[in-house]
């Protein structure tokens, strides 16, 4: 069985500066895989390349048997890859409901879309209560819920989340992490980028530690959680 996502020797550069220097990893269907690492390690760059916003300078990305290099970002969505970007990037002047509808932009099954909007409201009731309000009026945590709900609206085969806990209160962060666990239990395949290594590794089947553009350590979530260098560098222990 081949993996849903296979990244091999991926290199991405901004001008002359290489931000991702040849990384390889895979994501199997049904797994949660996490990329952790310090600021500037290249995690966001990796996700933006996977979703087609950036073009790699080398290496290959295979998703569901297809080579992604040939596709535009909007076509990659239609292949089943959804990306909830760092910083949430909801559409602030559109209503919450229209933000969710945009997540389903490429779908044509009207009744299915309505059902999935309802499902997003079940997952995050606050979104349903405020469906007609401009999304910019939501709090940071609520915007994160909207960004996740919106990404799910495309019915992705793989959901990529870039720092969903960024800037959230501990309670809100727990809520977001619980939702990710819930999605995992429901069979959603997730590639999770996090600064919060503890939370991410406890959820993940596999984890990779990135440092300045390279993967320096890989293992199961449990292995990494108990790895001494990870505990020192990311979990604030000495």
């Amino acid at each position: 069985m081949t993996a849903l996502l296979e990244v091999e020797d991926l290199r991405v550069a901004y001008g002359k500066i290489e931000a991702v220097k040849g990384i390889s990893f895979t994501v199997e269907a049904g797994q949660v895989v996490t990329l952790i690492g310090t600021n500037g390690a290249g995690k966001t760059t990796t996700l933006r390349t996977l979703s087609g916003l950036l073009k790699p300078v080398g290496g290959s990305i295979k998703f569901n048997g297809k080579t992604l290099r040939k596709y535009r970002a909007d076509q990659i969505v239609s292949l089943g890859l959804a990306h909830s970007p760092e910083g949430r990037h909801i559409f602030p002047r559109m209503t919450i409901e229209n933000n969710l509808r945009l997540g389903a932009y490429l779908r044509t099954d009207k009744t299915g879309i309505e059902k999935d909007i309802q499902r997003a409201y079940d997952l995050f009731p606050i979104l349903g209560e405020r469906r007609k309000q401009a999304a910019g009026t939501l709090s940071g945590g609520e915007q994160q819920m909207l960004a996740m709900g919106r990404a799910l609206m495309s019915q992705p085969k793989l959901l990529m989340l870039d720092e969903p806990s960024m800037g959230l209160s501990p309670i809100m962060m727990q809520k977001i992490m619980a939702t990710i666990a819930e999605l995992k239990a429901g069979g959603t395949t997730i590639l999770l980028v996090e600064q919060n290594a503890q939370a991410a590794l406890s959820l993940a089947d596999h984890g990779h530690v990135m440092e300045v553009g390279k993967i320096v350590l890989s293992g199961t979530g449990g292995d990494l959680l108990h790895d001494e260098s990870v505990r020192k560098a990311y979990l604030g222990e000495d």
Binding site: D74, V77, H89, F91, P92, M94, L102, Y105, S154
Partner: peptide
């Protein structure tokens, strides 16, 4: 409003 994010929606 946000061209890159619009692309991520499939636009």
């Amino acid at each position: 409003q946000d061209p890159d994010t619009a692309k991520l929606m499939g636009v």
